[in-house]
Design a protein around this nucleic acid. Sequence first.
DNA 1: AATTAATCGAGACGGTACGTCGGGTCTTATG
DNA 2: CATAAGACCCGACGTACCGTCTCGATTAATT
Lengths: 211, 211, 211, 211
Amino acid sequence: MAEPNRRTPGRPRDTDAEARIMAAAVEEYAEHGWAGYSLNAVARRAGVSKSTIYLRWPDKDSLLTDSVTARTHDIEDVDTGTLRGDLEALAANLLRHDLDPLGWATLRMAVDAAGAPTPPRRFAEQVTNQHRVAAVSILSRAVERGEATTTLPDSLVTEALYGTITMLALSRPSDRRIMGADEVAAAVVPVVDFVLAAVRDRLVSPAPLVQ
Amino acid sequence: MAEPNRRTPGRPRDTDAEARIMAAAVEEYAEHGWAGYSLNAVARRAGVSKSTIYLRWPDKDSLLTDSVTARTHDIEDVDTGTLRGDLEALAANLLRHDLDPLGWATLRMAVDAAGAPTPPRRFAEQVTNQHRVAAVSILSRAVERGEATTTLPDSLVTEALYGTITMLALSRPSDRRIMGADEVAAAVVPVVDFVLAAVRDRLVSPAPLVQ
Amino acid sequence: MAEPNRRTPGRPRDTDAEARIMAAAVEEYAEHGWAGYSLNAVARRAGVSKSTIYLRWPDKDSLLTDSVTARTHDIEDVDTGTLRGDLEALAANLLRHDLDPLGWATLRMAVDAAGAPTPPRRFAEQVTNQHRVAAVSILSRAVERGEATTTLPDSLVTEALYGTITMLALSRPSDRRIMGADEVAAAVVPVVDFVLAAVRDRLVSPAPLVQ
Amino acid sequence: MAEPNRRTPGRPRDTDAEARIMAAAVEEYAEHGWAGYSLNAVARRAGVSKSTIYLRWPDKDSLLTDSVTARTHDIEDVDTGTLRGDLEALAANLLRHDLDPLGWATLRMAVDAAGAPTPPRRFAEQVTNQHRVAAVSILSRAVERGEATTTLPDSLVTEALYGTITMLALSRPSDRRIMGADEVAAAVVPVVDFVLAAVRDRLVSPAPLVQ
DNA sequence: AATTAATCGAGACGGTACGTCGGGTCTTATG
DNA sequence: CATAAGACCCGACGTACCGTCTCGATTAATT
C-alpha cells in the first residue's frame, strides 16, 4: 500500500490559507456584489498575497464558485419525527439560507450558472440536487412511518417548497432581510400548509391543515 | 402653459439611440454575464459613442437595470375563461420568460437587487409585483365567475407558481433551455395541478385534478 | 493643399505630457539603473497615469530608447577657428556628456543596441553617426582654412577621439564623475594632443604639440 | 593540523554546480539582455534549484558580475617580439572579445558599473585594469628591447587603443558582428598605425607608418 | 444669416483591477 | 550540512475597462 497522503517535496502549502481565502472571498462578494468584488481586496482581507491565491485557483470566478459551494453544505436534514415537522425545519433552513449573504451568493451563482454558456454547468445541479436530496429523504421517512403513500411526487414537492421559499426571500426588501428564529418559523408555516394541502390525498392520516 | 413638449434649443437627441443602446446592453449582458458586460462593447454594438450613453444614464448598472425592466412588460394576463386555463397560460408565459436570455437576465438582476447594499432596491419589487398583479387578477376573475371563494390566498398562489416555475427553469441544463410551445404547455400542467390541489377547498366546483 | 496638421477627432493629447514622461524616464533610469527602472515610478514622477504612457509607447524599453535619443541631440559642433580649438571643444562636450547620467544612459543603450538580437538596431548608428558628423565637419573646416590636407582620415579620428574620451569617463570611479569646466578642459588636452600627433603629417603647418 | 581539507559534516557541495550556474548565467544574459535575464531561467538551464544559487551568491547582480569576470581572463598578452606585432595581437584580441556575446556582456556591465549608484563599483576598474596591465607590459617590453623611449604614455596608449577598438565594435551592425581571423587582423592594422603615429617620436627607430 | 445651445463621435486621461512573472526568503524532506 | 522542490510575499508588468474630460462637427431653434 503506497502512503496515500505522501508528502510532496517542497515547502508544504499553508494549511489555513485556503480557508481564510475562501472566507474572505465570500465576505467581499457579499459586501460589494460582483461589480465590487476584487481579488486584491480578497487577498488583503485574507492576509495573503495574490500569488498565493492564483496558485490555487485559475481566476476570480473559480475562487468564488468554490468558496460558495464549499459553504453550502450546511443545509441539514433534521428528523423531527413527523412529516410536517421535517418540512417546516427544512423550509426554515432554506429561508435562513436564502436570507443571509452567503445564500444570496449561492442563489446568484445558480442563476449565473444556469444561463451561462460556459463550463460551470454543474453548479446549479449541485446546489439544487443538494436540496432535492433533503426533500427526498424527508418524504421517504414519511412513507416508512406510514404517514404517506408511495405516490408522493418528490420533485414537485421539492421545487414548490424551495421555489416558494426563495420567492419569499427575494421579494423581501433588503432592509428587512434579518429575521429572528421565531419570525422564520412563523413565515414558514403557511408555505408548508400549502404544500401539504396539495399532496393531501397522498397522506395516510390527513395532516392537520390550515387552521 | 401652452406647449408642454416645447422643443428645447440645441440639437435634438437621436430618437432611436436610446432603444439601440438598451437592446445592445441586454444582448451584451445576456452573452457575457455581468463580468464580461462592458460599456465600451455596448457602445460599439449600438453604433454610438460612450458620451451618448452617459448623457442618458449615470452608470452602467442603471443602464442595465433600465434596459431589462423596459423589456419585461410582456408577461401578459390572458383571459381564457377558466381558472385552470388562466393559470396554465400564466405559467407557460413565466416558463418561456425564464428560459430565454432576457428572462434569465431579469432573474439575475432580481437576485442582485435583493441582496445588494446599493440603490437598485426597487428592481426586485418591480419585477415580482408585475407577476403578482397578473396572478391577482386571474384569481379575482375566478371569484367573479363563481369558480372560487374569496378566501383564495393570492400571495401564496403567486409565489408558489412563480417559484416552482423558476426552479424548474433553473434546474434545466443550459443545453436544454430551448423548448417548443407544446413542450412548455406540457411541462406546466403538473405545476398547475399541484397549485390547484393545494387550494382545492377554496374552489366552488372542485376542478379536475391529477389523473 | 490639404491642411497638414489637420486636427484629429477626439480629445487632443496633452502637449507637455510627452516631454514630462520622457524626462521622468531618463531621470528614473539614471537614478536606479535598468534593474530599478519602473514604469509605475515614471508615471508617478511625470504626474501621469500608466495608460497615458502606454498610449504613446508600446513598452518600457521603447520609452527609454526614445527618451534618451531625444535628449542626445545637444552635442554641438562649435567653430572656434582652429582645428585644435574645435577638437578640444568637441572632446570636452563628449566628456561632459559621458560623465552625466544622461550620457551614461546613452552609452548603456548603445551597448545594448549593438549586441541585442532584437530591433533597436538603428540606435547605435544614430548615436555614433551624430558624433561622426561633428568630427567630419570639424575636419573639413580645417581643410578649408588650409590647416590640413584632404587626406585626413575622419573615421579614425572620430573613433579614436570618441573612444578615448569614453574610456576616460568609464574608468573614472563613480564618486569622481563630477568635474568642473576647467577640469574637463584640462583632461581633454592630452587626448587632443595624442590625436593631432597621430595625424601630424596631414597637417599643413604642424600644430603646436605637447608642450 | 593534520588534515587541512577535512570534510565538513553534511552533504558536500556539488562540485560543478558553480560552473554550470555561471555558464548558464552568462548565456541567459547574452541571449536576453538584462531585462530578460531571469534567475529562474538560469536555475532551470543549470539544472539546479534556486536555493543552490542563493547559497553561493547574494543576488542576481552578483552572480552575473562573478560569472562575467570569471570568464574575462582570456585577454592574453602575447609576445611577438616587436612593438607593432604585440599591439596588433592585443588589438585583435580586444576586437574579438568585444564582438562575441561575452565581451558584449563585459562591456555592458562595465557601463552599468561606471554609472550605477550601487555597489558593483569595482567591476569597471577590474575590467579596465586588466587591459591596462597588458598594454603596460607590451610597452615596457618595447623599451627593454630598445624600440622605444621611457616617455611612452602608457595610459593614453591603452585608452586610445581600447577605446578605438570598442567604438569599432560598437558601430558594427549586429548582423556583421561575426568576423574571420583575417578580417579581424586587417581591421586592426589602421588602428595600430594610428596609435604608433601618435607616439612616433617616442620610438627609437621610427616604425613603418601608413603607406 | 448669424448666433446660440445642445447632441454626437472620437478619443485622451486618471484610476483601479486584472492575471502573469520574477526576485528573494522560507520551509520541508531527502542526500 | 547541502540540495531539490516549491510555497510565499512583494511589487512590476502590460492590458482592459470605467467614468470624466476635451475637442470638433452637427443640427435645430432663436435672434
